[in-house]
Structures are given as C-alpha cells and as structure tokens.
Design a protein around this nucleic acid. Structure first.
Length: 154
DNA sequence: GCCAACGTTGGC
DNA sequence: GCCAACGTTGGC
C-alpha cells in the first residue's frame, strides 16, 4: 500500500468530473513521461491512495482523495490519431504508454499549493521540490496522514 | 505571457 | 555517448 499525488488539469479532468463519472472511476490517460509511467507500471497497486491535484489552473492544489482501482493497461489515446496524446511510435503489439483506473473517494476543500508550501510537515513532498514537474509523485505515509488530518471533515 | 527547470531529440 | 537545441510543464 502506497500513496501518490496525481496531477490533472481541471479543464480536462477535474475532481467533479471524477465524482460524477460512472462508478466514480476514470482512466488515467495522457501520461507521456517515462518516470510517471513507470510509477504506474511498476509501483502502483490496487488500493493505493491518491491525492487528486489540480494543476495549470487559477488555484492549483489538492482537490480530492481518490484510489487506484486497476492494474496497468495500455492507454487507448496513444493509438488514436485524433487524440492530443496520439503517439505514432506506439503499436498495439508494443504500447509505450499505460493507464490505470482511478476512483474518486471524496471531493475535499482545496488545499492550495500556497498552503501546502507553508506546512513544515509537507516540505519534503516530491511535488513541492524545486523544478518538480512530474505528474505522478510518491507521497509518504506521514505526508498522507497529515493531509488526511487537515482535510478531515472538509 | 514569462520563464525556470527538466525531458527529449538528433547530429556528430 | 555527448550535448546543443528544442519542447513541455506549470506556477506566477
């Protein structure tokens, strides 16, 4: 059992989109970075906890709690020429990119990036490190607990 | 829109 | 394998 922070642009998939999706579950598509892909492929397990983070938006920050509900499988968008995420070098036989399914647990108040940066308990979070751009980053149990406590009831 | 930081590509 | 050029991310 591990914990992750996963970034999504709310214009594309917001926490509200997840909570209103069928089964509150969405495929995590569009990851096109090998490090992030490898986390999904090699480390993530069903039941892992996810901090759902809104990025590239007016108020970036943690917007909800989710969980991993599938193992890795090929990301369908890599095969779709009309998709923004199309990858001509990917084939059905040899896919390059993968998805996992993520299920919304609950929407929370926004724990903004600015607030996160004020919390000493979170200062070592990978996502807060200078220059960190990875869309999927590990979260320690202590960090997870602290965020859960902060968002309890919100 | 700016720009720092990082990732990828491709020539050599 | 090196590394310059270019592309992307993402906060501000």
């Amino acid at each position: 059992m591990q914990y992750w922070l996963m970034k999504s642009e709310p214009d594309e998939v917001s926490i509200d989109d997840v909570m209103s999706a069928k089964g509150k579950t969405v495929p995590w598509f569009g990851v096109r970075n090998y490090q992030a892909r490898n986390f999904m492929r090699d480390a993530m397990q069903v039941g892992d906890g996810v901090l759902f983070y809104h990025s590239s938006c007016p108020e970036p920050g943690i917007a909800g709690i989710a969980e991993v509900v599938s193992g890795p499988y090929p990301d369908a968008t890599q095969f779709d020429p009309r998709s923004h995420y199309y990858d001509a070098k990917a084939t059905q036989e040899q896919p390059r990119w993968i998805s996992v399914d993520v299920k919304g647990v609950r929407k929370t108040r926004l724990l903004s990036l600015a607030e996160m940066r004020t919390l000493p308990q979170l200062e070592d979070m990978v996502v807060l490190q200078k220059g960190s751009r990875l869309s999927i980053t590990p979260v320690t149990p202590a960090q997870w607990k602290h965020v859960m406590a902060l968002l309890k009831g919100d």
